[in-house]
């Protein structure tokens, strides 16, 4: 009670006899902390950039005027061969579809896994409340492993193709969505669940009929956002590993001059797809969450 009425410990309590002094004192202290934090932050950033610059093969100032060299070289070659572009677009559409398919299947499988995991890991809903920490740690671990690690290891075992990428992205998605799903499910109204329990529904029926309808809009919205992220991840995995439009891009880049029209075509294709999916997911998420 003393704390509530007069603030912290007696020695550190502001001197109420002189409120002006006390206030200025507090402001001064706040400013000092803020200033110290700012100085540390600026020092970290400055030394960090200097270190990174030093470790880089080419320096920042040497490279700065070259930033536009590569794009302009690529664009000028592509401009000369602009007649080829529609044909190249067409050639790479199957790879693009593969990239999107990888992301879609991974999101779907990951979201389904996340549904189960999140319900099992949510307080008040869990089938086995004692196992909640296990399911939570499972999700943490799934989230922590970068996709590329799983993908490269799986490429070694399964050979190339889209499946390693799907599994890698799906595992990560399961962990990431599981956490978000469980945060949503925590806020679900428990009355329908109790009602279902009173008529003898088992756990899966209680979840399916009592919880899922409540959380579905938010879950779908998160899943859409994840799909958008996964399309990018799938393109990157293609570049590092195998499969999809990322792989085509890598091959075209390695070829270098003479195939820059392909590079531009793939860049454009990827850019347009990402923007399109971004837009669509934005639109539908708005609709789902805000209802208009």
């Amino acid at each position: 009670m003393v704390d509530v009425a007069f603030g912290p410990e007696p020695g550190q309590r502001p001197n109420l006899a002189n409120p002006r002094e006390a206030y200025l004192d507090m402001v001064r202290r706040k400013r000092m902390y803020g200033g110290i934090l700012l100085v540390i932050f600026v020092a970290l950033m400055a030394s960090g950039w200097m270190l990174a610059d030093h470790r880089n093969a080419g320096g920042f100032w040497n490279g700065l005027h070259q930033v536009l060299d590569f794009p302009s070289e690529v664009l000028s070659e592509a401009w000369e061969k602009r007649a080829n572009l529609p044909g190249i677009f067409w050639d790479h559409v199957p790879a693009l579809i593969e990239t999107v398919n990888i992301a879609a299947v991974a999101t779907l499988v990951g979201a389904l896994a996340a549904m189960g995991l999140s319900l099992l890991a949510t307080r008040g809903l869990a089938r086995w409340p004692r196992l909640i920490p296990i399911f939570r740690r499972t999700m943490d671990a799934l989230r922590a492993i970068p996709e590329i690690v799983i993908a490269l290891v799986l490429i070694y075992i399964l050979g190339g193709g889209p499946v390693p990428a799907v599994i890698a992205i799906a595992l990560h998605t399961g962990g990431a969505l599981g956490k978000l799903f469980s945060e949503v499910a925590e806020n679900a109204d428990l009355k329908p669940v109790e009602g279902l329990a009173s008529v003898g529904a088992n756990w899966s029926q209680r979840m399916w009929l009592g919880v899922i309808p409540q959380v579905a809009p938010n879950w779908l919205s998160y899943a859409l956002l994840r799909f958008e992220i996964n399309v990018r991840a799938s393109a990157i995995l293609g570049f590092v590993g195998e499969g999809g439009i990322g792989h085509d891009l890598k091959i075209a880049m390695q070829w270098g001059q003479g195939r820059y029209d392909q590079v531009v075509a793939i860049f454009l294709l990827l850019f347009l797809t990402i923007v399109l999916i971004d837009r669509a997911s934005d639109h539908y998420r708005h609709k789902l969450v805000k209802g208009h």
Partner: peptide, 25 residues
């Protein structure tokens, strides 16, 4: 929208041409 849409992958490729490989890129 543009910098977000041009994915990190593409930025990485374009920038590594100018700055060379390394953490700064």
């Amino acid at each position: 929208d543009f910098v977000r849409g041009v994915d990190g992958l593409i930025w990485t490729i374009v920038l590594s041409r100018a700055f060379g490989p390394g953490p700064m890129t």
